[in-house]
Write a protein that binds this DNA or RNA. Sequence first.
DNA 1: TGTACATCAGTGAACGCGCGTTCACTGATGTAC
DNA 2: TGTACATCAGTGAACGCGCGTTCACTGATGTAC
Lengths: 227, 227
Amino acid sequence: MTPRIRRDDQHQAVLDAIKQAARNLMAEKGTAGLSIRAIARRLEMTPPALYHYFANLDALITALIADAYHALADTLEAALADQCDLAPADQLRLLMRLYREWALAHPTDFTLIYGSPIPGYQAPVEATLPAARRTLTLFATISGSALQQGAAPVADVPAPLRDSLAAVRDHEGLDLPLGALYFTIVGWSQIHGLIMLELFNHLQPLIDDRAALYHHAVDRMLLSFGV
Amino acid sequence: MTPRIRRDDQHQAVLDAIKQAARNLMAEKGTAGLSIRAIARRLEMTPPALYHYFANLDALITALIADAYHALADTLEAALADQCDLAPADQLRLLMRLYREWALAHPTDFTLIYGSPIPGYQAPVEATLPAARRTLTLFATISGSALQQGAAPVADVPAPLRDSLAAVRDHEGLDLPLGALYFTIVGWSQIHGLIMLELFNHLQPLIDDRAALYHHAVDRMLLSFGV
DNA sequence: TGTACATCAGTGAACGCGCGTTCACTGATGTAC
DNA sequence: TGTACATCAGTGAACGCGCGTTCACTGATGTAC
């Protein structure tokens, strides 16, 4: 028995409980539900007790954002690890389907990371960017494989984008043609639009079968890149 | 002189001032700046005075949302009216460029209508949907012309979407092939994704020349539909 | 093993703040005859 | 044109609420010798 560790475990358990309570509150009342006092109430603690776990409300939000990015990346990576015998193009298709499904299954977390900025909160980039990049590099890696096997050659990269894309590639240590990265960012942005509109109920008055819309849009987008 | 009208004008002027103050506050502090008391403070009125102009805070927000939709549609319509001699495909390109430019020039309004729902506020659909549809039908109309003149035939519409699309077409009284409406919704959603990511600063760490990214993505998307 | 001490988790009271909304009211503007 | 009345805009006080954060504190848990 190493008591020191037991105390740390306890600390970690309460910390997790706080974050979970915060997530539940957000799911129920949106980002406005995110308050020190509301969380304390739910956990039957007093508000000041939370300050043993987070320096302040912003630190809590930052942790939730990082968690959400990681949860998304974990889900996608785990699902893909099970399917590594699939053809790269199908892996890509799967990835994009899972991206949407995660967003719809975790609207709160998805809104937290990709929705409007929370009023009065400014995310410290260094704390969240690495977590955010995980999903992007996963997309990029699979895209690279898929494009290599595609019928068409990798798309030409517009000149004004080359430097930025090369910087990202080098920073992430990716071994990919720039065209694959270009495709990744454009493709990801485009499917992202469908998801955001669906998540915020702008497609609901237009289309009943939004899954079909999404899947056809994905297929069409892949096709346009020769995947 | 018809005094009755002068009083109405006065009323309208104050009403406009309230909405403008609300927009300014939102631009400065985000949606959290939207409060009866803050607006009253800025206009050097007392908070209860605002209740002569709006039943409550929600009604004010609803008005702002409807205004934003109309402002966007007005801008696009006006710009296109000046360019009706342009080839339809170029009109479409222009429209998409203007859509992004309006979003970036009016981040507050754009976030209000397309960003995360405001906590505790539920938009009454009947008050905002018609305004929202103006932009969509504009896209659809131009798309229809562009596709008619395109090299490729109009895209096949996936079966699960046909009923929904036909319902929209009939409801809006549009005289278009369903393929044009399908293209409109997919295309609009996709460019919407690029804009949302840029607006919320998710592209900034990746791409410097985001206008180039957007314009190339638009061209590529149009190409994939044979425009 | 026992004891003195440090660390940590949590409490309860309090701070100052901003919020939406209501109410009874005053005074000005417009209307009807 | 003049007067009685209705309508409207705005005030000031008050309601009850929730918020983040600080502070001095108690009591338990773990550590060092």
